[in-house]
Design a protein around this nucleic acid. Structure first.
Length: 480
RNA sequence: GUGGGUGUAGCUCAGUUGGUUAGAGCACCAGGUUGUGACCCUGGGGGCCGUGGGUUCAAGUCCCAUCACUCACCCCA
């Protein structure tokens, strides 16, 4: 520790350490793969936009715009804002780049950090990460259904079980207004029995009362008028269409108590917070792994937004996944082993330094992941590093190996672990010592069986690896 | 913006009614043992006890303030 006060990260913005990033990479790779299957293309937009974009797009009176944005003036006085969500920027890019001209349809996905100045708690940060998708130019419910399917596919490909997709229809803008006033008059009759929060919600966002966790409120909410009874003709048809399309894709409704992976539940109490949503709204809820912030993804249709932002009227729908929350659910369900390199080169004596690098670079150019300890300390310390690296094999270069012209290959794991890593175990068991229960260390040089790495000595006394042989050998080791 | 909890080693935590030089486990480094790494043995590095003030002969411990972290409300991903 140095003397001065140490500089810390700023509240709500977290470091993702190497043990974290391997999980994040897995999530992002899965997302990329699934989105590609649905013919979505990646878009990257700036992390900052003019404040006006969010004020107009998200809604002036939402919490996000009113009190959660990181807003500041650029040097010329322009008001800029760190993006609090992804849709507005993508919509802006769609309009600004005239993506509708060549093809009004656009299916896009994005991933990246978002910023909201909120109080932090489990599952809520000031810099958080979303993976989102947007589909422009299509108002058919088939698109809504595909969005849902895409989410379910992603969760399935990650092996997640404790999540549930819930869908609802908010109706068109007019239906929403009507339903809102019906709700207000229903709740107003029993206003004094609602909790303090809900009495306030009644004025600001009455739909939220339906969602209240307080016992008394939810009891009253159960008797409240149903959204579906207040859908207009078109919104109702759209929602029916969505259900048909889901059914056509084999995605079933789950009306039972217990969540079932790969199904959806109709939940009339799903309410989206942002102003622009109409018709389809959906949300993915987690049962484990996140604190009380259990919404892992949310989305819906926003057919008016593009026009509101100055584009041609264009229907659109999208969702955003809270990547931080998704990762935390994933971590609660399964543990991931950090993938190690294929080989760890242990070199000592005359073989340290440049000699080791020669072997390492041969291996790397043959396409293997290789690590070594550049301090070239004692064999013991290098083997400790090798063990920790997670590499299944060590390749050993010492004075003896240089003399014999063969580097040793030594397994660092039990046979079972090697098997689990997809290594050709028939070959390995020949390499390993007799006992299978308790695989012991051994030196390939003692038991060659063609298993050492041949080293070719050049006239200057330097060695190089028998590369063709090595590739053949290694590709057998790592078959499949 | 509002409420609760917690601050002692890199991590998880002990630390008595205030009383020598603040401890353990894990991790890290070195040495020993070993079939060159794992198990075991020995040793080592690493602490402004969150920070500032107060009480006292004496504060990690008691009092006040402050900061940070954390969980929850609101709201959202």
């Amino acid at each position: 520790m140095s003397k001065g006060a140490s500089i810390t990260r700023i509240r709500g913005m977290n470091d993702l350490l190497p043990q974290d990033t391997c999980v994040w990479q897995r999530v992002e790779a899965a997302a990329r793969e699934v989105f590609l299957r649905y013919a979505y293309q990646e878009i990257r937009t700036p992390i900052m936009e003019r404040t006006e974009l969010f004020a107009r797009g998200i809604g002036e009176t939402t919490d996000i715009v009113e009190k959660e944005m990181y807003t500041f003036d650029d040097r010329d006085g322009t008001s800029l804002t760190l993006r609090p969500e992804g849709t507005a920027g993508v919509a802006r890019a769609y309009i600004e780049n005239g993506l509708h001209v060549s093809d009004p349809r656009a299916r896009l996905w994005y991933a990246g950090p978002m910023f909201r100045h909120e109080n932090v708690q489990a599952g809520r940060f000031r810099q958080f990460h979303q993976i989102g998708a947007e589909a422009f130019g299509m108002d058919h419910p088939a698109v809504d259904a595909e969005m849902c399917a895409m989410l379910l596919d992603l969760f399935a490909s990650l092996g997640l079980k404790n999540l549930e997709l819930q869908i609802n229809s908010l109706g068109d803008a007019e239906d929403r207004r009507n339903y809102r006033s019906v709700l207000v008059s229903y709740f107003s009759g029993q206003e004094n029995r609602l909790c303090e929060n809900c009495q306030r919600r009644l004025k600001t966002n009455p739909l939220r009362v339906l969602d209240c966790k307080v016992e008394g409120c939810s009891a009253i909410a159960r008797g409240a008028p149903h959204t579906f009874d207040h859908l207009g003709e078109q919104a109702r048809a759209h929602f029916e269409g969505l259900r048909e399309c889901l059914d056509a894709m084999g995605i079933r409704e789950n009306a039972g108590e217990v969540p079932v992976p790969g199904t959806f539940r109709i939940n009339p109490r799903i309410v989206r917070g942002l102003d622009y949503y109409v018709r389809t709204a959906f949300e993915v809820t987690a049962f484990t792994g996140v604190g009380s912030q259990n919404a892992v993804a949310g989305g819906g249709r926003y057919d008016q937004l593009i026009a509101q932002l100055g584009g041609h009227p264009t229907p659109a729908i999208g969702f955003a996944i809270g990547e931080d929350r998704l990762v935390s659910v994933l971590n609660s369900e399964q543990t991931m082993e950090f993938p190690g390199p294929d080989f760890f080169v242990v070199a000592f004596g005359a073989a340290g330094g440049a000699g080791a690098l020669r072997l390492v670079s041969e291996l790397r150019s043959a396409g293997f992941d290789v690590d070594l300890d550049h301090r070239f300390g004692s064999p013991k310390s290098q083997f400790k590093q090798a063990n920790k690296s997670g590499a299944p094999f060590a390749i050993i270069l010492g004075d003896g190996e240089l003399q014999s012209g063969m580097a040793a290959i030594k397994p660092l794991m039990t046979l079972e672990k090697l098997q689990a890593g997809g290594v050709d175990t028939e070959l390995v068991s020949r390499l390993l010592d007799r006992s299978k229960e308790q695989p012991e260390p051994f030196l390939a040089t003692e038991n060659l069986d063609g298993a050492g790495v041949p080293l070719l000595l050049d006239p200057s006394g330097q060695f190089s690896v028998g590369r063709d042989w090595l590739i053949r050998f290694c590709s057998r080791l790592f078959a499949g």
